[in-house]
Design a protein around this nucleic acid. Structure first.
Ligand SMILES: [Zn+2]
Ligand SMILES: [Zn+2]
Ligand SMILES: [Zn+2]
Ligand SMILES: [Zn+2]
Lengths: 130, 130
DNA sequence: TAACGCTGTGTAATAATATAACATATTTAA
DNA sequence: TTAAATATGTTATATTATTACACAGCGTTA
């Protein structure tokens, strides 16, 4: 079982917005949208985003500087993420592939490094854009 | 065989600098270093960086907004990159693992997406930092 | 030769992304 | 009930990256 995190006011507002979008949102577009709810400054947004990433409610798409909700209620980890990104329409999908996860979890380099996290981004063209 | 790209003056200066560092460099730190060579503006740096990424001479570490030289003279592709990143000392190493590459190359999602590129970043603690 | 496309350069201005620093409030735990 | 941890609000600033414009050099080709 996962620890049930209790979210603060700002965290709830921002998570709510991100969950309503099925595509990644950028910090300043979030800021624009939550101004009507009384969140006025970038830092308020970034603080909430950082927390939400930390507890696995959202993920950051590093190559896009954007944030997407995690749909996988079971895992709730920010530690092992895989995304596919369409370079034409910018559609992003989180991938949960058991075999791939196993492979990545078990990966060992030859330098004795201890991993606790990874992020994998696939780029290409989605079915609509081919 | 790879096409031998002929680099321009600015591209050479900046590749040279990045190749001399075994760790990723940030764009504005590069800018600072190449001012003595007559490169004065961010855009001159970013233009060279973009080209060097495109031809596979360097890679961008997305989670760090930094650029590292590709040591793998044989591949010279910007299309399949794997890095390990120490979250304590920020040491970055490019990983070339045949089995992992195969696995990633062959990965198919269930949405019919056609991939032409991926980037994988492992995070953890290196031997020195454990 | 002249016209064109392509790539690169130089410069100024600005956009987009993210954090530092400070003061205060609220919740949690010893 | 005091202390620690977490969250808030605000201002200012740092960092990362692009737009827009003018022009130079090179190879193709009409
Ligand atoms: Zn997820
Ligand atoms: Zn698409
Ligand atoms: Zn490489
Ligand atoms: Zn380290």
């Amino acid at each position: 079982m996962q620890k049930q995190e209790i979210l603060s006011k700002n965290q709830k507002i921002i998570l709510d917005l991100i969950e309503k979008s099925d595509q990644p949102l950028k910090a300043y577009s979030i800021l624009f949208d939550v101004k009507k709810k009384g969140i006025n400054a970038p830092l308020q947004v970034y603080r909430a985003l950082n927390k939400l990433v930390k507890i696995g409610k959202i993920h950051k798409i590093e190559s896009r500087n954007a944030f997407i909700a995690c749909k996988n209620s079971k895992c709730q980890i920010a530690k092992a993420t895989v995304f596919s990104i369409c370079e034409s329409c910018e559609d992003v999908t989180e991938i949960h592939d058991h075999k791939l996860s196993e492979h990545l979890r078990d990966f060992k380099d030859n330098k004795g490094m201890k991993y606790n996290k990874y992020n994998l981004e696939f780029f290409g063209l989605c079915k609509k854009c081919i």
